[in-house]
């Protein structure tokens, strides 16, 4: 049993302890958050692959491809093309938006600041359910094929700098009807091909829901799909940067 006076003193002591506990906990929590953000800041400064400026697009080649006869690979630039600037005189563009791109969200097409590479109309790649999302300097085009099979085309002109020799030492393929060297990789759930055209890095992924799907047993289907990626469209942002007039 406690006397009333002792009880009050003890209660006051507990109150003080409680107050300092709350203050301590708040300070501690704030400090934990501060630690997390300071670590994040520290990481940003830590060595990591360096992001490069947007690569210069070979707009002349892209315009030739957009306007040209869409024979596989016929109008594509040579692999040695190094991002030549647009012609001094504003080139004319007869058809900025090819048929496949005309069925995509115009808003997304217009936001895209690179040549929008899509399958050619009437080719082997189905395009009726195609959907596009643009990130400005990159885009992703989703192309559902037969049940359980999806192709995704991405274009990207913002890259990080690879170490010297890192890409050069990797194997590349010369494929029929494709002017550029292509890298083909097997994925856990499909196949992927990437190549550089107009200064832009394009990737075509093939995903199969079923591991035994004949389209994913080897890379033959993907190779044909890549060969069909010949249509080029230029949305408003791309046209502005290319300096073209319609």
């Amino acid at each position: 049993m406690f006397s009333g006076k002792f009880y009050l003193w003890r209660r006051a002591g507990m109150g003080a302890l409680l107050t300092s506990a709350v203050i301590g906990a708040v300070v501690g929590l704030a400090h934990a958050q501060e630690m997390a953000s300071s670590k994040a800041a520290q990481l940003k400064a830590a060595p990591s692959p360096r992001l490069q400026n947007a690569t210069q697009v070979d707009w002349s080649a892209a315009i030739r491809q957009a306007d040209g006869p869409h024979i596989q690979g016929a109008q594509a630039p040579s692999p040695q093309a190094r991002g030549v600037a647009a012609d001094k005189a504003a080139p004319r563009l007869r058809q900025a938006i090819r048929p496949v791109a005309s069925r995509l969200s115009r808003d997304q097409v217009n936001r895209t600041r690179l040549p929008l590479l899509t399958p050619r109309e009437g080719g082997m790649v189905r395009t009726e359910r195609a959907r596009l999302v643009s990130f400005g300097d990159a885009y992703s085009l989703n192309l559902p094929q037969d049940k359980g099979v999806v192709l995704t085309v991405t274009g990207n002109r913002r890259m990080v700098q690879a170490k010297r020799g890192e890409i050069a030492r990797k194997p590349r393929l010369k494929l029929a009807n494709i002017p550029e060297d292509v890298q083909i990789t097997r994925l856990e759930d499909g196949w992927s091909a990437s190549f550089r055209r107009f200064g832009v890095l394009y990737t075509v992924d093939l995903l199969c829901d079923d591991a035994q799907d004949v389209k994913c047993l080897d890379d033959a289907y993907l190779r044909k799909a890549v060969a069909d990626m010949t249509d080029v469209s230029l949305g408003e942002e791309a046209q502005k940067e290319a300096g073209v007039a319609q």
């Binding site: 990207n156 990080v160 700098q161 690879a162 010297r164 890409i167 990789t185 990437s194 200064g199 890095l201």
Partner: peptide
Amino acid sequence: HFEIRVSQSETLSDGTMLAENAF
């Protein structure tokens, strides 16, 4: 199973630019 893919480029001594989308 968590993957990261990053677009990378390399410019050769003759000015040729190579690029890849690598894991």
